[in-house]
Simulated scan of single mutants.
Amino acid sequence: MRPKNAKLPQSKIDANARLRLRFKQSVGIKLRNIRISRKKTLDIIALKLGMSESHLRRIEKGRCDTGISIIGRLCAEYGIKPNDLFDGTEFLNPYVKD
């Protein structure tokens, strides 16, 4: 067991950062594809949810951390369950080479 004040090796930190980025990108791509398949535009969805288009664009590109409340509101707007965004496992293995 690692002591509380022990630091992770840099390689572990990098792997965790890559994993988080892949996760955000995967969810963002799915949200974008769903929005497009529903024939909704960024400006309409952003307006309905009370956020800027640029913020929604960053979510769809996986460039920002998104809280569960925003994910829930997007899912409700698109008529899907949050589980539908997390059904893939393509982002789970941080050791897969790009």
Rank of each mutant, 00 (worst) to 15 (best):
R2S: 11
R2N: 03
P3E: 04
K4M: 05
N5M: 08
N5P: 00
K7N: 10
L8A: 12
L8V: 05
L8R: 09
L8I: 03
L8G: 08
Q10E: 14
S11N: 05
S11H: 09
K12T: 09
K12A: 13
N16C: 04
R18C: 02
L19I: 00
L19V: 03
L19N: 02
R20W: 02
L21N: 02
R22H: 02
R22D: 14
F23T: 03
F23K: 10
K24R: 14
K24G: 00
S26Q: 04
S26W: 02
V27Y: 01
G28F: 00
N33Q: 13
N33R: 06
I34C: 07
R35P: 01
R35N: 11
S37N: 08
R38P: 02
R38F: 06
K40N: 06
T41K: 09
D43M: 07
I44Q: 10
I44P: 00
I44L: 05
I45M: 07
I45P: 00
A46I: 14
L47R: 14
L49C: 03
M51E: 07
S54C: 09
L56S: 01
R58Y: 03
E60I: 10
E60W: 01
E60D: 09
R63I: 04
D65P: 03
D65C: 04
T66Y: 03
T66M: 09
I68T: 10
S69A: 09
I71T: 08
G72D: 10
R73H: 11
R73V: 06
L74T: 05
C75F: 06
A76S: 13
E77W: 08
E77H: 10
G79Y: 11
G79S: 13
I80T: 04
I80L: 12
K81C: 12
K81T: 11
P82Q: 15
P82I: 12
N83L: 14
D84S: 15
L85E: 08
L85D: 03
F86A: 08
D87Y: 12
G88F: 07
T89Q: 07
T89K: 08
E90V: 08
F91W: 15
F91H: 15
F91R: 11
L92N: 09
L92H: 11
N93W: 08
P94L: 12
Y95S: 10
K97L: 15
